[in-house]
Structure formats: C-alpha cells, structure tokens
C-alpha cells in the first residue's frame, strides 16, 4: 500500500516537481499514473523506491515511512517492490535465466530456491524457451518480459512500472499491459506510469492524472482525460 500526504518535491536546482500530492493505493489495486512529459510521474516513482526523498509531506510504502527509514534499512522497502523501467535495464552479458536468477541471488536466496523459482516465473511471462539467450538476441517485448520476470521473482507485494511500453510498438505494448493485468489478478498491487492514451483506454482501471506536479483527476472510469482539464 502507498500513502502520500501533502507531498512536495523540489530538486537541488530549484525545479518544483511535485506541489502537494495526496493519494492512496491499496493492496491488490491496479492504478495507472498518467500525465504529460515533465509532469512529475517519475518523481513519484522515485519517492516510492527511495531513490529521492520528498521536501515536505509524508510518503508511506508498504508500511515503511520513507522520511524516517535509515539508509541501512532501505533494502527492506525495496524487497517489497518490483520495479520495471522503459529501458528494461537488463545485464547484457548475462542470459535471460541469469538476469532473473541474479535478482534472487543478490538478496541471499539459496541455489535450490533459485532453481525452483526462476523457471516458474519465466514460464509465467512466456519466456521458458528463451532462457539461454542474451538480451541482444531477443526482441524488445521479450526483453521487457524478462524485466517483468525479474521484478516478480522475489514475490513483491507491489510492482511499479515507469513507462514500461515506451519503447514498444502498440501490439507489444498491449501484450505487456495484459501481462501486468494478469499478474495483478494473482494478487500483486500494480502502479503503471504511462502517457499512452489509447493503451490506458483499453482497460477499465483507476487512472490518476497529474499535471504540473498536481493531481488533476483520480477516477475509476478508466479514461485518460487529462487534456480536458
């Protein structure tokens, strides 16, 4: 669960990225976060992952107060989150299998656990036949599915995706969104950042629209309507 109360963020250079954000995302929910470029979407994601700290207000992520948590405990928050980016962020010299296994290994999972869990998630994202390929030997859509598998593998409570389909064609994008929807149905909370209107409107989900660092609409009608505000 995410709670933001009167959250402000100004970067070191003075840019006011967020100007009083209030929102709540409950466990099991699927929410789109939409808005034009530069509106503050990625800043919200970075507040949730602890990459940046807010200037004012309260951010609570899966029970952790992000203003109070020590740097040495930050990994605890991150283990409750799976993160997906537009540019996939895979390790180029590792195979698909190794990329996913790596995420388990670095949080201290045993070989046995890894050998059991990785094939399962690769199967879930439809990549069981691609395990031994390297990222540059598979398509963009497949690379993003590797990133999804990696985000899923440690069984996070929530997945956060920052423009996950930004580098993909419409058909691949739809495929990825449907996969995220399926994962959400299995119980993982989902927060998806995008600015693709067509895509959002194909789903009936909660849409939080943001512009100029403020929330301008938040509704369940599944309509990406920030332009009309």
């Amino acid at each position: 669960m995410i709670v933001m109360r009167d959250v402000f963020k100004a970067y070191e250079n003075g840019t006011k990225a967020l100007k009083g954000i209030n929102m709540e995302i409950n466990d099991g929910e699927f929410a789109f976060l939409v808005g034009p470029s530069g509106s503050g979407k990625s800043t919200i994601i970075k507040l949730i992952t602890g990459e940046v700290a807010c200037t004012d207000g309260t951010v609570i992520v899966n029970g952790f107060d992000m203003n109070k948590i020590k740097l040495s405990k930050m990994h605890k928050v991150r283990r409750t989150l799976g993160v997906i980016f537009q540019d996939f962020r895979l390790i180029e010299d590792k195979t698909v299998y190794e990329n996913v296994a790596f995420a388990m290994r670095v949080v201290g999972a045993s070989k046995k656990e890894i050998n059991k869990r990785v094939p399962y998630v690769l199967d879930l994202v439809g990549l069981d036949t691609r395990s031994n390929r390297r990222p540059n030997e598979i398509s963009g859509g497949e690379q993003q599915r590797v990133a999804i598998a990696r985000a899923l593998v440690n069984n996070p409570r929530m997945i956060i995706a920052d423009e996950p389909t930004g580098n993909l064609d419409p058909a691949r994008s739809l495929e990825i969104m449907m996969m995220l929807e399926k994962i959400n149905e299995l119980g993982t909370t989902m927060l998806v950042v995008t600015h693709e209107r067509e895509l959002v409107n194909q789903f009936s989900k909660r849409v939080i629209a943001i512009d100029g660092g403020r929330i301008i609409s938040d509704g369940m009608d599944g309509y990406y309507n920030y332009e009309e505000q």
Partner: peptide
C-alpha cells in the same frame, strides 16, 4: 539493479 531489487549495501 542490485539496489533496486533490495540487496544490502554490504552485499
């Protein structure tokens, strides 16, 4: 990536 998935600083 290690930080993102929650590896400790020591690790």
């Amino acid at each position: 990536i290690m930080k993102m998935v929650g590896a400790t600083s020591a690790f």
